[in-house]
């Protein structure tokens, strides 16, 4: 016959294990909830061949969410995502941009003119991929005067 103290001790081990199990489960659940893969569009968005952007034009590439402009020095891509709450801005006839959600206005180089937007629209790095097509990197902002030479 086991003594009451011993029984008591075993019971405590059991309940302690239940507590540990609770912590383990919570931690595992949190880890389970974040799978380290993404099926969304990659942050590097294809823009197509350079010839798609005639000199002096501003082209909206919807799949990439950027405005691509080309001048004699090369190509640059400006994010079309409003810095306020992430809506996609629209180009205006005067060359500026306006956000349809809360009316933020930007000039043609992305500087905030009015509205709640806290920061100018960033310019993004443009590179060529192996096949010679251009791609914009949504995670890499570059200075407004940096252009990618496309010849």
């Amino acid at each position: 016959m086991t003594s009451p103290e011993r029984r008591n001790f075993i019971w405590q081990i059991g309940t302690a294990a239940v507590a540990v199990l609770g912590v383990q489960s919570a931690w595992s659940t949190l880890r389970y909830a974040r799978a380290p893969v993404s099926y969304g569009p990659t942050r590097r968005r294809p823009l197509g061949q350079a010839s798609r952007f005639p000199r002096g034009s501003v082209v909206f590439v919807a799949d990439a969410g950027v405005f691509v402009s080309r001048d004699s020095a090369g190509i640059r891509a400006m994010s079309a995502t409003c810095t306020h709450l992430g809506c996609t801005v629209r180009a205006q006839a005067d060359g500026g941009f306006v956000c349809p959600c809360h009316g933020s206005r930007y000039d043609k180089s992305g500087v905030v003119l009015s509205g709640p937007a806290p920061a100018p629209l960033p310019f993004l790095r443009v590179q060529r991929d192996r096949g010679g097509r251009l791609q914009a990197d949504l995670d890499v902002p570059v200075p407004a005067d940096q252009r990618t030479d496309v010849g």
Partner: peptide, 8 residues
């Protein structure tokens, strides 16, 4: 890829 996905 999902942590604990296989065992679940």
């Amino acid at each position: 890829v999902v942590p604990f996905g296989r065992v679940t």
